[in-house]
Write a protein that binds this DNA or RNA. Structure first.
Lengths: 116, 116
DNA sequence: CGACTCGTACGATAGGCATCGTAGTACGGC
DNA sequence: GCCGTACTACGATGCCTATCGTACGAGTCG
């Protein structure tokens, strides 16, 4: 109730200066994770883990979200039983200007090409 | 000998439409390979494998160059005993406009940050 | 409280991969 | 033809990781 900071459990996120480009690229080099990131980028706000309908089990999904968080690509916050996920877009833009935009554009372009 | 324009041995390269974004990102997510690509991007022309002084053995170096070639990031051509390597910059720019530029800029930014 | 949903932890498994060392092939020059 | 240089092929090794299933913890709602 009231408004405790957020909820009870807090998750570890890398600080800006701990984010490594190689880690970000590795995180995005998995099709499942790239798909998650694309969906997050296209959504207005944060999305819960259960919002995603991935062709893998829940434990594997948990794994992918953790990789994304630990590499610094997304931010995760508990909200009740749900876990909300959002791109760390502003921070990434500060660290690597233009990178996320180019990556998302490239992913969109490839998706369009493969869909035709 | 029939008459190969350049040399005898030809190496398999993926066509433009066979290049996958995930493959490119995976190739660049290795520090050694990112270093190679940065050096290639900064050079005026192609560079031989032996030009690079990497902290790994030659066989490992061969492995990294092959990963880069098979993912579509670089082009490799034999020239005598040497193997010349060059970024497929123009083709990648056509396939994913702005991507390589953003990636190289991000890598340069991180290198500068870590060097200070 | 009890049931239900959401997500986690843990162990197992199978495949991928970065690395090495050694032995070998291709090419150019003497 | 012979030697040296440049790179490769192959096998081994140890680590990383994507995947699963099951059992569990945290929170919500009746």
């Amino acid at each position: 109730m009231s408004s405790p900071a957020v909820s009870s459990r807090d998750l570890p996120h890398p600080a800006l200066d701990e984010i490594r480009l190689e880690g970000v690229l590795h995180a995005l080099s998995d099709p499942m994770r790239l798909r998650i990131v694309r969906e997050l980028a296209g959504a207005p706000g944060d999305l819960s883990c259960s919002h995603f309908d991935l062709p893998v089990t829940k434990s594997t999904t948990t794994h992918h979200f953790r990789v994304l968080r630990e590499s610094g690509v997304i931010r995760q916050v508990y909200r009740g039983t749900a876990k909300m996920n959002g791109l760390r877009r502003d921070e990434l833009d500060e660290l690597f200007p233009g990178l996320m935009g180019a990556l998302l554009a490239a992913a969109a372009r490839q998706a369009a090409r493969l869909d035709d």
